[in-house]
Structure formats: structure tokens, C-alpha cells
């Protein structure tokens, strides 16, 4: 099986400081990879480099495109990369305000990607938007409301619908449950897990919440100081942490 995403020796520096360095891994179709670490460990920097929001200083991010096979997205042309970002990739921001157009109705938000790839039939766009709102448990009669009239959890679900509408194969998630209260978090996680499994999506989930990766991720990467300190199957890493930092991280979780 060829990996969907191959990352080789990614490095990003901010001047003399290290953002992240020496990160390599393969992500296979249908697999969910969790990246955990404390604030400043370089996990968000890594995600930005992978998703093309930031240019890494060194390394390769090879993505298996539908039409041209494996291509290095770091060196590919910008139009091609932005095209990927609208079609085969999705990016779920921690703050839904970063990923949504707050002045545009829910239907318009979901439809934007369809129109960006050439959808020009209003009826079809609206139908697809309604369908996706239902899939993320937003009532159909809210389709013409603006996201600013939605609760935080609904905004996050809307952001997910907006991203998944073009049928991406790879989803980047940056703290998808950050800023939500626990019961809403649980529902969102449940929804995400269902969508990921049903659609066979591959995903990279960055979070500092170990419960999120326990539920969503097949594999886990633990980062500290811009470097990967431990990798493995999620249950294996969380139940039998080898590296000192991972042990600290696991033991820091409050037990209720």
C-alpha cells in the first residue's frame, strides 16, 4: 500500500529558534494520526507546514494526488497547492471564526468550496449544503442563518461540513475540540469519529487533549521542543509510555 502522505525530515525555524525539526512519518489511507505535545512543542507549526500554510525550511511533504501520483507539495506550484487545499484537503481550525465566513449564511459557507471548484447550479449546491448540514446535525431550517447566530459547537460542526463537502481525502485538524465544553466536545468527537470511519478519511489531529486522540487516532506522535520523542499505536503509547516526557504527559491527566 502506498502512503497517502509521506513526510520526510521537515524542519521549520523561526530565526535561530526551532519550530520543528527532523519530523518524518507516513500516513496511510484511512488512518488517523494524532500529534500531541505541550504548548510550544511545534505541533501547530508542523501542521501548518504539512497543510501548506507555511513553507518549511527543509524536507518533503509527498502527497499521493489523484491524477499525478505522489507529488512533493512543498515544491509544487502555488495554484496547484491551493487547488489541493480546496479539493483533496480539509483544514479544521481550532477557532471556527478562522475557518468560516462569519458574514455569509451557513448554506453559503458550505457551498463556497463547491462554487470554488466550478459548481454553478444553485439548486444542486443548496441540496448538497442541506444534506451536509444534516450530516453534522444542524437543522435544515438554519441553512440561511449566519454562523454568528450559532453556538460554539454548531459553528465547529458547520466548519467541518464546509470542509468535507468536496469529499477530501486528508483532513488536518488543529485542536478541533478546543474551547468547547465537555458535553459538546463529546458529541463533536462522536460525530468526527463517525464521519472519519464512514468516509474512510485520513486525518492528522493536533491536540493537547489526550482523550481526543484516544478516541480518534490510530497512531500517535508525541512532540517536545520541536522534535518527535515517541511514536506508536495510540493505546500502546498511552498505556505504556516509554519516553520520560510521554510518561509525564500521561500522568498529568486529571482523573475525575
Amino acid at each position: 500500500m502506498t502512503p497517502l502522505l509521506s513526510v520526510r525530515d521537515i524542519e521549520k525555524r523561526y530565526g535561530a529558534r526551532i519550530g520543528c525539526t527532523g519530523v518524518s512519518f507516513d500516513l496511510f489511507p484511512g488512518e488517523v494520526m494524532g500529534i500531541v505535545g505541550e504548548s510550544g512543542s511545534g505541533k501547530s507549526t508542523l501542521l501548518s507546514c504539512l497543510a501548506g500554510h507555511m513553507a518549511p525550511d527543509a524536507g518533503q511533504v509527498i502527497f499521493a494526488t489523484r491524477d499525478r501520483g505522489p507529488v512533493d507539495t512543498v515544491t509544487m506550484s502555488e495554484p496547484a497547492r491551493r487547488m489541493l487545499a480546496r479539493t483533496d484537503w480539509a483544514f479544521v481550525h481550532q477557532n471556527p471564526r478562522d475557518g468560516l465566513r462569519m458574514g455569509v449564511s451557513a448554506g453559503g459557507n458550505v457551498g463556497e468550496r463547491l462554487m470554488a471548484v466550478g459548481g454553478r447550479h444553485y439548486g444542486t449546491i443548496r441540496e448538497t449544503a442541506t444534506d451536509w448540514l444534516a450530516r453534522v446535525e444542524i437543522a435544515a431550517d438554519r441553512i440561511d442563518d449566519r454562523p454568528s447566530q450559532f453556538s460554539g459547537g454548531m459553528q465547529q460542526r458547520l466548519q467541518i461540513a464546509r470542509n468535507l463537502v468536496t469529499g477530501p481525502r486528508l483532513v488536518f485538524m488543529d485542536e478541533p475540540t478546543g474551547g468547547l465544553d465537555v458535553s459538546v466536545q463529546a458529541r463533536l468527537l462522536d460525530l468526527l469519529r463517525g464521519l472519519v470511519r464512514r468516509l474512510g478519511l485520513s486525518a492528522i489531529v493536533v491536540t493537547h487533549d489526550l482523550a481526543v486522540v484516544r478516541l480518534l487516532a490510530d497512531r500517535l506522535m508525541v512532540m517536545k521542543g520541536g522534535r518527535v520523542v515517541e511514536t506508536g499505536l495510540t493505546d500502546q503509547v498511552l498505556d505504556d509510555p516509554q519516553h520520560g516526557y510521554t510518561q509525564l504527559l500521561v500522568s498529568s491527566v486529571l482523573q475525575v
Binding site: R86, G108, R113, D144
Partner: peptide
């Protein structure tokens, strides 16, 4: 694509 979002909003409203 964004230009059509504006027209979509018009029709929706």
C-alpha cells in the same frame, strides 16, 4: 468561487 457565494447569498435571501 467567492464571487458566486455573493450571488448564492442573494438567492438564498
Amino acid at each position: 468561487g467567492l464571487m458566486h457565494v455573493k450571488l448564492y447569498e442573494d438567492i438564498a435571501r
